[in-house]
Amino acid sequence: MWSVVDVLQEFHPFTLSSAPHHANLTLHIRAVGPWTWKLAEVYGDKASSAKYPEIYMDGPFGEAHQNWWDYEEVVLVAGGIGVTPFASILKDMVYKLHQSFKVIRTKQVHFLWTTRSQKQYEWMIDILREVEAADKHKIIKVHIFITQFKSKFDLRTIMLYMADRFHHSECGFSLFTQLRAITHFERPNFDSILQTLKKECKANVIGVFSCGSSSLSHAVERSCREMNRAPDIIFRHYYKNF
């Protein structure tokens, strides 16, 4: 069993990944220490006939990403495992889209996810596929940025990039993910992305929500401040760091 010392000396963020309408609560927990390793072992052993230990939870507590529906134009920026809270948001969007398009004030969602490799987002594919299937009005635009090849942009990477772009333009979905989401083999240029949104946006205020490393949040914040130099469209940035 876990000792009090184990619990007190280790800090692990537990991220809710289920939507409010779900009957069951799902969590994503980073296993990086003795008691979270044990937690993964106990709950991951499906063959075990032992009774699962009880878990006591307190909450709910407020969180900055919960007010995404207050904005007509929304930008969601995830870095690595920082995608987990957006998994919950996207599931909630799917549910609301199934209910009625009119229940959502938000008219356009731009979901940007930066990840090192394809393997790191395979678990998210089913969620994105469900989102795209429910999004009949196509209000959600997904861009996946794979940064693993950043320092090794060789001929192989160029060919992969060109093949995926061609397949996407011809068939309407990615060769690698089978999603409408566009795959990029680079880091996102937030200045360029926000500038493009600013030109196309019809709303006066854009809600920007980021989750990931502090460097990611700082990069998004700098770009938002740069865009806010001209007060015609305001970018409001909310962030959470892992």
Score class of each variant (00 low, 15 high):
1 M>Y: 08
2 W>F: 13
6 D>F: 02
7 V>P: 00
8 L>Y: 10
9 Q>T: 12
9 Q>H: 10
11 F>V: 11
12 H>I: 11
14 F>L: 12
14 F>N: 00
16 L>G: 03
17 S>R: 04
17 S>D: 02
18 S>N: 04
20 P>E: 02
20 P>I: 07
20 P>F: 03
21 H>P: 00
22 H>S: 09
23 A>K: 10
26 T>D: 12
26 T>W: 11
27 L>A: 14
29 I>R: 04
30 R>C: 06
31 A>L: 09
31 A>K: 14
32 V>P: 00
33 G>E: 11
33 G>V: 05
34 P>K: 08
35 W>D: 06
35 W>R: 09
35 W>E: 06
37 W>A: 04
38 K>Q: 12
42 V>Y: 04
43 Y>N: 10
44 G>N: 04
48 S>T: 13
49 S>D: 08
49 S>R: 13
52 Y>L: 15
52 Y>S: 14
52 Y>F: 11
54 E>V: 09
56 Y>H: 11
60 P>G: 09
62 G>L: 05
63 E>S: 11
63 E>Y: 08
65 H>A: 09
69 W>C: 06
72 E>S: 10
73 E>Y: 12
73 E>N: 14
81 I>F: 07
81 I>W: 07
82 G>A: 09
83 V>T: 11
84 T>N: 15
84 T>E: 05
86 F>V: 06
86 F>H: 05
88 S>R: 02
89 I>H: 03
91 K>T: 01
94 V>L: 02
94 V>H: 01
97 L>A: 05
101 F>W: 03
101 F>K: 12
102 K>P: 00
103 V>H: 07
104 I>A: 08
107 K>E: 12
109 V>G: 07
111 F>S: 07
112 L>G: 01
117 S>M: 04
118 Q>R: 14
118 Q>C: 01
118 Q>F: 15
119 K>A: 10
121 Y>R: 12
124 M>D: 04
126 D>C: 05
127 I>F: 00
128 L>P: 08
130 E>V: 05
130 E>Q: 14
130 E>R: 13
133 A>G: 04
136 K>D: 08
136 K>L: 06
136 K>F: 01
139 I>K: 15
141 K>Q: 06
144 I>K: 02
148 Q>F: 12
150 K>A: 14
152 K>P: 00
154 D>S: 10
157 T>E: 02
159 M>G: 00
161 Y>R: 15
161 Y>G: 00
163 A>W: 02
165 R>C: 03
165 R>V: 03
166 F>E: 13
166 F>T: 15
171 C>G: 00
172 G>M: 06
172 G>D: 12
173 F>S: 07
173 F>P: 00
174 S>F: 04
177 T>R: 02
178 Q>W: 13
178 Q>P: 01
180 R>K: 15
181 A>I: 06
181 A>L: 07
182 I>V: 12
184 H>T: 03
185 F>H: 10
187 R>N: 05
187 R>W: 00
188 P>A: 12
189 N>Y: 11
189 N>K: 13
191 D>C: 03
192 S>E: 12
194 L>M: 15
200 E>F: 03
201 C>V: 12
205 V>I: 15
213 S>M: 03
213 S>C: 10
213 S>G: 11
215 S>R: 15
216 L>V: 13
218 H>G: 02
229 R>L: 11
230 A>H: 09
232 D>F: 09
232 D>W: 07
236 R>Q: 13
238 Y>H: 14
239 Y>E: 09
240 K>R: 09
242 F>V: 11
242 F>H: 07
